Computed example of a mutant assay.
Amino acid sequence: MTHELRDLCRLVSADGTLDLQEIAMLWDYVQAQLEAVAAGLPRVLFDRLNAAWLDGRISTGEAFELLDLCSAVADGLSVDEYEDRLPACNTGSSQTFLSMPAEARPSFSRDDVLLFSYCDSSGRMTQRRVLFRSLDDGYMTAICLTRNASRTFRLDRITSEVVVANSGEVIGIDTASVFAGMPPKPTTRKPVKTIHDLCTVVLTGFELDEKHVLVEKMQRVGMQLRDGVSTRTSYLVTGQKPGPVKLEKAKALGVPIITAADLLDLISGM
């Protein structure tokens, strides 16, 4: 296991979530560094990435599994240590919840503030205060009031009673049953992003006319243009006079640096 892979996994899993751009960045890395994922837990990560990537879309369950793996790789765990850590997050009383009659289950409204303990992908217990939004297939979507950001939580990792701060109601039974009594998330959800939509590009060193042509071609295939280099950047595309700051930042973050010709090749392949 290389230090570079561990650092990358630590970087993408640091905030407790794994978005599509970060998964794309991981995929690009393991494809270019096959020797780093030849054995052990990195190989498991590679296999899961490959399986998740085949249909061009990442499910919530796949994203959570990849987050668990990234966190474990970042911690330098072996396959056995990774498998031993997983059950530690599944400490809820789900059998009790599932047996609870539907009519007896409490329900949450969209703007309820919920308090509960949660086991993250590293096995750490944290206290969460969230604004409930919706339920979908064993996962809860809510606004984290600490970070003021949308988060998705696995129901089987809520390890305590759930307190509804608005009313003071304490729900000390199976979390899965509580949420199972609620109507499903509305079907007017956003379209699932495909691999084409994941590609974010930063351009540097181009004349205005040349940049306009490249941007137009990118937009036709769904690529997204960004002004600055970040961990979510898929490629830094360089022209005749690339900016030194963007080049240095791309190198520091491991963002692939390509030419306009390389970009056009990517576009033609889409």
Rank of each mutant, 00 (worst) to 15 (best):
T2R: 09
T2M: 05
E4T: 13
R10K: 11
L11P: 00
S13H: 05
L18A: 07
L20K: 01
L20Y: 09
I23S: 11
M25W: 12
L26W: 06
Q31E: 09
A36C: 11
V37N: 12
A38I: 03
A38W: 00
G40M: 13
G40A: 09
L41F: 07
R43I: 00
V44I: 08
L45S: 04
D47L: 03
L49Y: 01
L49I: 13
A52G: 10
D55V: 11
G56N: 12
I58L: 15
S59K: 02
T60W: 06
G61T: 09
G61E: 08
E65M: 13
E65H: 08
D68K: 10
D68C: 08
C70T: 14
S71V: 09
A72T: 09
V73H: 06
V73E: 00
A74C: 02
A74D: 05
D75N: 14
L77E: 10
L77W: 01
S78A: 06
V79K: 10
D80C: 09
E83K: 08
D84C: 08
L86P: 09
S94N: 04
Q95T: 11
T96F: 14
L98W: 05
L98A: 11
A102Q: 12
A102D: 15
A104S: 14
R105Q: 15
F108K: 03
Y118G: 07
S121C: 12
T126K: 08
Q127M: 03
Q127H: 03
R129A: 12
R129G: 07
L131S: 14
R133W: 06
R133P: 03
R133G: 00
Y139F: 15
M140A: 03
M140H: 00
I143Q: 11
I143G: 13
A149H: 03
A149I: 04
A149P: 04
R151W: 05
T152R: 07
F153H: 04
F153Q: 05
R154T: 06
L155I: 08
D156G: 05
V163I: 14
V163W: 00
V163G: 02
V164M: 07
S167T: 15
E169T: 13
V170P: 00
D174P: 05
V178S: 06
V178R: 01
M182H: 12
P183V: 04
T187G: 05
K190R: 13
K190H: 10
T194F: 00
T194P: 02
D197S: 12
D197E: 15
T200H: 11
L203P: 05
G205C: 04
G205A: 06
F206N: 01
F206V: 09
F206L: 04
E210Q: 10
K211A: 15
H212S: 13
V213T: 12
V213M: 10
M218E: 12
V221T: 07
G222M: 06
L225S: 14
V229A: 08
V229M: 09
S234F: 03
Y235T: 00
L236R: 04
V237C: 05
V237P: 01
V237F: 14
Q240V: 15
P242K: 07
P244S: 10
P244I: 01
L264E: 14
D265I: 07
L266C: 08
